[in-house]
Amino acid sequence: MAPVPFDQLEGFIWMNGEFIKWADAKVHVLTHSLHYGGAVFEGERAYGGEIFKLTEHSQRLHESAKILGYTIPYSVAEIDEACSTLLKMQGFEDAYVRPIAWRGSEQTSVAAQNNRIHCAVAIWQWPSYFDAEQKMKGLRLDWADYRRPDPKTAPSKSKASGLYMICTMSRHLAEARGYADALMLDWRGQVAEATGANVFFVKDGKLHTPTADCFLDGITRRTVMELARERGIEVVERAIWPEELAGFEECFLTGSAAEVTPISEVGEYRFAVGAISKTLVQAYADAVRPKRAAAAA
């Protein structure tokens, strides 16, 4: 059976301070952010009825909008409350949470100083970002054709919709070639990230990850780094060149959608789904479900 299109799901969406029916959450075709890519958004997950690191995500939504030159007319606390209330209204325990803010349709030109800033939250049930059966076998990544841009040419610290255009293109190309995703380089030719997740490598018991100076420093990325250090695993943030992948033993991706996902291939390079990857998969699963972990203890 084909999946139900997102605009045909049922339930409610919080939009501009009100809870409205899912089918009524609409914008005009001349909405500025549809034409000029000025939306900012978050990707969050709820586990057992609680949204993991909700406030951090709401704060980053505000920071992303500020970088793009506008202010969201709802506070961090108001967005937190909207997300939590909507999760209960939808009746979900485990779900994906998508807050988004965007410029409206008062002006449709490059300039948009007079446009209203809209904000919405949608929540739906969404399983693993990658195929669950293949996940622990390690996914295969292609090399992306596009690169993350110089931060002098794009607002790379903002989780902004326009920055994902090359990610969609790169993932489509990778999937057409039989891969699950693509690993992107930056404008310098250094390893950056996958199309929607940060990347880590393992060598000699240490974690190595690219310095987040031209792509998003993910909340899940930071969480996994904390979990690794708590377990005595050294974390090294540094520039990583593609040819270094030949010397790494393990590789995995991190993100709210991807969670912690082991990688078995990046182009011509091969990796084992080893002990550190498995440890951090479990550590993250326990961190997002603390009640379950406490009960098991």
Score class of each variant (00 low, 15 high):
residue 98 R to Q: 11
residue 98 R to E: 04
residue 99 P to F: 04
residue 99 P to C: 05
residue 101 A to G: 06
residue 102 W to H: 03
residue 103 R to L: 14
residue 105 S to W: 15
residue 105 S to K: 14
residue 108 T to V: 15
residue 108 T to P: 02
residue 108 T to S: 08
residue 112 A to V: 11
residue 113 Q to M: 09
residue 113 Q to P: 03
residue 114 N to T: 11
residue 115 N to D: 09
residue 117 I to L: 05
residue 117 I to K: 01
residue 117 I to Q: 01
residue 118 H to V: 04
residue 121 V to E: 05
residue 121 V to N: 05
residue 122 A to H: 09
residue 123 I to P: 04
residue 124 W to F: 15
residue 125 Q to M: 13
residue 126 W to S: 15
residue 128 S to P: 07
residue 131 D to G: 08
residue 135 K to R: 15
residue 138 G to T: 03
residue 139 L to P: 02
residue 141 L to S: 02
residue 141 L to R: 03
residue 141 L to K: 05
residue 142 D to W: 12
residue 144 A to L: 07
residue 145 D to A: 13
residue 146 Y to Q: 12
residue 147 R to I: 06
residue 148 R to M: 03
residue 150 D to Q: 00
residue 151 P to H: 06
residue 151 P to N: 08
residue 153 T to V: 14
residue 153 T to R: 11
residue 155 P to M: 04
residue 158 S to I: 00
residue 159 K to P: 07
residue 159 K to F: 03
residue 160 A to D: 03
residue 160 A to T: 13
residue 167 C to K: 02
residue 169 M to I: 14
residue 170 S to T: 09
residue 172 H to P: 00
residue 173 L to N: 13
residue 173 L to E: 12
residue 174 A to D: 01
residue 175 E to G: 00
residue 175 E to T: 12
residue 175 E to F: 00
residue 182 A to N: 04
residue 184 M to C: 12
residue 185 L to P: 10
residue 186 D to P: 12
residue 187 W to S: 12
residue 188 R to L: 12
residue 190 Q to E: 13
residue 190 Q to M: 14
residue 191 V to F: 01
residue 191 V to P: 06
residue 192 A to I: 09
residue 193 E to A: 10
residue 195 T to M: 03
residue 196 G to K: 06
residue 196 G to A: 08
residue 198 N to R: 10
residue 199 V to M: 01
residue 202 V to T: 07
residue 202 V to E: 11
residue 204 D to R: 09
residue 206 K to E: 15
residue 209 T to P: 09
residue 211 T to W: 13
residue 211 T to C: 13
residue 211 T to E: 15
residue 212 A to T: 15
residue 213 D to V: 14
residue 213 D to L: 13
residue 213 D to W: 10
residue 214 C to N: 15
residue 214 C to Q: 10
residue 214 C to E: 09
residue 214 C to H: 10
residue 215 F to Q: 04
residue 216 L to K: 09
residue 217 D to H: 15
residue 219 I to R: 11
residue 221 R to Q: 08
residue 222 R to A: 12
residue 222 R to H: 12
residue 222 R to G: 12
residue 223 T to D: 06
residue 225 M to W: 07
residue 226 E to H: 13
residue 228 A to S: 07
residue 229 R to W: 01
residue 232 G to K: 05
residue 236 V to M: 12
residue 236 V to R: 13
residue 239 A to Y: 13
residue 241 W to C: 05
residue 241 W to S: 13
